[in-house]
Design a protein around this nucleic acid. Structure first.
Length: 489
RNA sequence: GCGGAAGUAGCUCACCUGGUAGAGCGACAGCUUCCCAAGCUGUAGGUAGCGGGUUCGAGUCCCGUCUUCCGCUCCA
């Protein structure tokens, strides 16, 4: 059996070889941390999406979906905090490999000066820093650090790299005319889908006549210019999120947070994944917008990693959008507060967010499904690679295989195809031995294969072969559709 | 970003101290008509990630670059 590290490698190879995932623009050597989904990968991804979407919107009458644009008004990102909080110049110490925010580093030094009683010097330093920061003068800032002999607290050296600005957001120009101030034309590719929901909060609430508590779900692409993006599709620069913002009455966030934690884990377990593979990781250090947060982590071959986040976002986002847009983000709650005997009245709702990485979920499903089996008998060595996808997620549901390509068997098989293909994804194959064809289907995770043989002509039955057990049973032609639908819906 | 390893056919890999690239599997076509891969025949596919250098000659040595994996770092 492969070790875990090897297993990860094996999964990557398998994804490439069987048409699940390719490096983006591979003929040009690929693009770092960007991947394309191939013929089976896109099917699997779509099935995961549908499963999530349906479980959110169909199973919860108070959750509706939207599909917001990737481009958003630039002020959105000021309100969300993305512009201010993630634009900091950074500097690395070459000896300790420690990375510092430039302002933190200099402020830290100024504090030391103050302790030494050199108050004026410290004040001058901070003033110089502010001036240089305002001008984005990185050369000047670096000089300032060197001139003051500011050292890394770990290595104790002043062996610094150049100052670089890391901005997690991709930007591009908007419109075909260029203004003198290029900031005017600058739009960002959204770094998260959540803001598309927040800016539409009132639209959906009013037109959908939604009553709190209610949720808005969305699936869509987001883009982050990660400093390092690695580990296959685990951290990509372009990725897809499936998230739901649940709007609630202030003060009820604790219970709803717990509710969604439990609900989301239930969803994961409903796919048949072993419970031990999951764990919650509570955030100690909270983001600027949250009052509680946790990750649902899954044990990938590369260890326990975050697949989904559940955040209690308070009213941070709506409040800020209200402030920046000057539009009231209030909800009038007619329900009676038992304490006062009066309606709850106007308030800005609190928000519980569940946000799952679709690509990570894909990797989760793939890791969980990928199995190398030793089927050797004393007489013969044998093995297979099988993807044990939950049938409802499998890219291909059914393979229709004539045992031989003569005696009218292909014709019967074609009829089965015609009967089934409008209901679920089917695959027809008459080349090679039947065993080989079964194994090929195992490799892409097809849960069912039916084989048309001579007996089919006599009694209208076929064998249906189950992927996981490799067992076969004889069933009437008329039963095929029902059997497949039953386990894939 | 730092450190380590790697990049040869679709996949896994070989080519030892430099002498103009091989295997297995896979794919395709045909034979076989066989209910669980590795039976037969045939075919296609690589100039060795890319660029440069050393050399009479480089996949093999050197430099650069891109990509991937591992560790550290980062991850609102």
């Amino acid at each position: 059996m492969a070790t875990d590290s090897n297993k990860f490698q094996a999964i990557i190879s398998h994804c490439k070889e069987y048409g699940f995932i390719f490096p983006s623009s591979e003929i040009y050597d690929g693009l770092q941390a960007v991947y394309d989904y191939g013929q089976w990968g896109s099917e699997l991804k779509k099935n995961i999406k549908d499963y999530w979407w349906n479980s959110m919107t169909r199973m919860n009458e108070n959750i509706v979906g939207i599909d917001a644009a990737i481009f958003m008004h630039p002020t959105t990102w000021k309100a969300s905090g993305h512009v201010d909080n993630f634009n900091d110049p950074m500097i690395d110490n070459k000896d300790s490999k420690k990375r510092y925010r430039v302002d933190h580093l200099i402020e830290g030094h100024a504090e030391l000066m103050e302790k030494d009683g050199r108050l004026d010097e410290a004040k001058a330093l901070l003033e110089d820093m502010d001036k240089l920061l305002a001008k984005d003068d990185f050369e000047g800032l670096r000089k300032l650090i060197l001139d003051h002999g500011i050292k890394c607290s770990i290595s104790g050296t002043a062996n610094w790299t150049d100052i670089r600005q890391f901005n997690l957001m991709f930007s591009t120009e908007f419109g075909s005319t260029v203004s003198a101030d290029d900031e005017d034309n600058k739009v960002y590719l959204r770094p998260e889908t959540a803001q598309g929901i927040f800016v539409n909060f009132l639209n959906v609430q009013k037109t959908g006549r939604m009553k709190i508590p209610f949720g808005i779900a969305q699936i869509g692409k987001a883009f982050r210019n990660e400093i390092v993006a690695r580990q296959f599709i685990f951290r990509m620069r372009e990725f897809e999120q499936m998230e739901m913002q649940f709007f609630i009455r202030p003060g009820t966030q604790k219970e709803w947070y717990e509710y969604w934690k439990a609900e989301r884990l239930k969803w994961h377990l409903s796919l048949g994944t072993a419970k031990e593979k999951y764990r919650f990781h509570d955030h100690i250090k909270l983001a600027h917008y949250a009052d509680a947060a946790c990750d649902i982590e899954f044990e990938f071959p590369i260890g326990f990693k975050e697949v989904e986040g559940i955040h209690s976002r308070t009213d941070f986002d709506l409040k800020n959008h209200q402030e920046y847009s000057k539009k009231k983000m209030q909800y009038f709650d007619n329900d009676i507060d038992e304490k006062t005997g009066k309606p709850y009245g106007n308030y800005i709702p609190y928000v519980i967010e569940t946000s799952i990485g679709l690509d990570r979920m894909f990797l989760l499903v793939m890791s969980n499904a990928y199995t190398e089996e030793d089927l050797s008998t004393p007489e013969k060595q044998d093995s297979r690679v099988v993807l044990r996808f939950p049938p409802k997620l499998a890219p291909m549901k059914l393979a229709v295989l004539p045992l031989v390509k003569k005696d009218g068997l292909p014709e019967i098989a074609r009829k089965i195809m015609d009967d089934c293909k409008s209901h679920f994804r089917c695959f027809y194959e008459e080349k090679d031995t039947i065993g080989k064809r079964y194994r090929r289907m195992d490799a892409i995770g097809t849960p069912f294969c039916v084989t048309v043989d001579q007996q089919t002509k006599e009694d209208n039955t076929v064998t249906i072969r189950h992927r996981d057990s490799m067992q076969q049973e004889r069933v009437p032609l008329t039963e095929i559709k029902r059997i497949v639908l039953e386990s894939t819906n």
